[in-house]
């Protein structure tokens, strides 16, 4: 209920690379390979914009990314972004900040053109082209028309 806070700074290059991997863990590519992961699809740009306007979430995410990296180095001997997909999935699942990112990951993912196409839609906004719809079949109203007046006079 407060006015929007001053925008926070963007992420550094390393953090961004790690964020892309986290997003791919939250929405991985579909098993049939037709839908990209959220990181691959480009959801990070949207999420990063959200983080600019939500400083508390940004702090949580930046700290979480650092912890992920430390854990990855401790467990696998390499940076989080260099771990394999299954390794990253396990690491992200154990991180509370992942949950906080989920809604933003979904919103960022399902607005990407490549994702819309994979869903069978055109990669465009709804306007100005719109959608074509079929003519109404008003014969369906026959049983309703057959009934008498239903409102009360007064």
């Amino acid at each position: 209920m407060t006015a929007a806070a001053t925008p926070a700074a963007g992420l550094g290059a390393e953090e961004r690379r790690a964020l892309v991997c986290v997003l791919d863990a939250l929405i991985p590519p579909s098993p049939d390979g037709r839908r990209p992961g959220a990181g691959q699809a480009g959801a990070a740009a949207y999420v990063e914009n959200v983080l600019r306007t939500l400083p508390d979430l940004r702090t949580m995410v930046v700290e979480g990314l650092r912890e992920l990296d430390e854990q990855a180095r401790g467990l696998h001997g390499r940076a989080f972004a260099s771990c394999s997909e299954p390794e990253r999935a396990v690491l992200v699942a154990a991180q509370p900040f992942g949950y906080a990112l989920v809604p933003h990951a979904y919103i960022g993912y399902y607005q990407q053109g490549s994702v819309l196409e994979a869903l069978g839609l055109e990669a465009r906004p709804p306007h100005p082209q719109g959608h074509v719809m079929t003519e109404n079949d008003l014969s369906l109203l026959a049983p309703v028309r057959a009934r008498s007046k239903r409102y009360r006079d007064c």
């Binding site: 863990a25 989920v102 399902y110």
Partner: peptide
Amino acid sequence: FGPVSTAMLGLTAGRMPHGEGHH
């Protein structure tokens, strides 16, 4: 619903996991 609203509706209803099983 559009794709974003579908995902958010599912999330609110506890039907839209992240990770494996999301798609």
